[in-house]
C-alpha cells in the first residue's frame, strides 16, 4: 500500500469506510481520541516549517503491516496475531485474544486498538452490519487487517473460478473510499504493479524505518519538508535545539 500524502485532504472518508466495512461500533459515551476504536485514523502533522509557510499534512495511519520482524506477532502470548506468508498481511484472531494488550505496547505506530467498551449500536443499526465480518467484542485488541472480509471473499471467488488469488482481486475499503485516490493498494512483490512503481519512487518513505520492522505501508510526498518531518526522529527535532 502506498499513500500519497500530497493528495490526502484529510476528509476522513477512509476512516468512515473502514468502520462501516469492519463493523466497528460508534463511540461509546466518554470515548476520547485515546480510547477510540479507529483501525484507520488520519493524523494531522505540521511539516515543520514556520508560519505562514507551514503546511499540514494529513497522514492516514493504520496497521503498517510490518514484515517478518513484526513487533506484535512475536509478543502475543497465544498466537492471536498471525503473519500471513502468502499476502504478507498481519492478521488478528480476536476470538483467541485475551486482551493482555502486550501487542499494543509493542506497536510503535500505535495502530492497535483495544475494545474498551462493549460494542453498542443504536437500535436497528445492527441491520446495517456487514455480514462478511464478525462484530467487535469487548476486551480484545484489534487493528487494520487490510479488510480481511474482502480478502476472504476474493479468495472464495478466486477458488470458485479455480484460479489463484490475484493482487487486484480486491481493494480494502479505505482505498475504495478515498475520493482523491491517494491510496494505492496492490502487490509490492510484483514489479509491474502500480503500487511497486509508486513504492520505488524516491519520494516514497516508511515510518520509523530505522526500527527495522519493515512496514509494507509506504508514504510519498513531493515535499521534502513533509518527508523530513515524517521521517525525522527525536535526534534532529527542533525541540532539541530549543531545549538543549
Amino acid at each position: 500500500m502506498v499513500i500519497d500524502l500530497d493528495r490526502c485532504t484529510g476528509c476522513g472518508a477512509c476512516v468512515i469506510a473502514c468502520a462501516v466495512e469492519n463493523n466497528v461500533p460508534p463511540a461509546h459515551e466518554g470515548t476520547t481520541p485515546r480510547t477510540g476504536l479507529t483501525w484507520m485514523r488520519v493524523v494531522r502533522v505540521d511539516d515543520g516549517r514556520s508560519f505562514p509557510d507551514t503546511r499540514s499534512v494529513f497522514v492516514p495511519l493504520m496497521c503498517q503491516q510490518c514484515d517478518h520482524h513484526t513487533p506484535c506477532v512475536s509478543v502475543c502470548p497465544q498466537n492471536a496475531v498471525e503473519y500471513d506468508e502468502e499476502t504478507g498481511i498481519v492478521t488478528q484472531v480476536p476470538v483467541r485474544c485475551l486482551g493482555c494488550r502486550y501487542c499494543m505496547t509493542a506497536c510503535p505506530y500505535h495502530a492497535r486498538y483495544f475494545n474498551w467498551w462493549d460494542p453498542e449500536w443504536p437500535a436497528g443499526m445492527e441491520q446495517t452490519l456487514n455480514p462478511d465480518v464478525s462484530t467487535r467484542m469487548r476486551g480484545v485488541a484489534e487493528k487494520c487487517n487490510f479488510c480481511h472480509g474482502r480478502l476472504q471473499a476474493a479468495r472464495a471467488k478466486a477458488a470458485a473460478g479455480s484460479r489463484p488469488l490475484a493482487p487486484d482481486d480486491y481493494q480494502p475499503a479505505c482505498v475504495e473510499a478515498c475520493p482523491t485516490e491517494a491510496i494505492v493498494f496492490g502487490d509490492l512483490n510484483d514489479p509491474r504493479s502500480t503500487v511497486s512503481a509508486a513504492a520505488s519512487s524516491p519520494d516514497t518513505f516508511r515510518l520509523l524505518e530505522h526500527l527495522g520492522t519493515g512496514p509494507k505501508v509506504r508514504y510519498r510526498s513531493r515535499s521534502a519538508a513533509v518527508r523530513e518531518s515524517l521521517t525525522r526522529n527525536s535526534v534532529s527535532s527542533e525541540k532539541e535545539q530549543v531545549h538543549g
Binding site: V75, C76, P77, Q78, N79, R96, L98, V140, A141
Partner: peptide, 26 residues
C-alpha cells in the same frame, strides 16, 4: 482483572506462543 477477557486466560496455555516473553511469564 487487567486482561480484557479473563475467561480466556487459559488460552495462553492452550495456544502458547513460545517466542513471547509473556508466555514465559505466564
Amino acid at each position: 482483572v487487567d486482561v480484557g477477557q479473563p475467561l480466556r486466560a487459559w488460552f495462553t496455555f492452550w495456544h502458547p506462543n513460545v517466542h513471547s516473553m509473556l508466555t514465559e511469564v505466564t
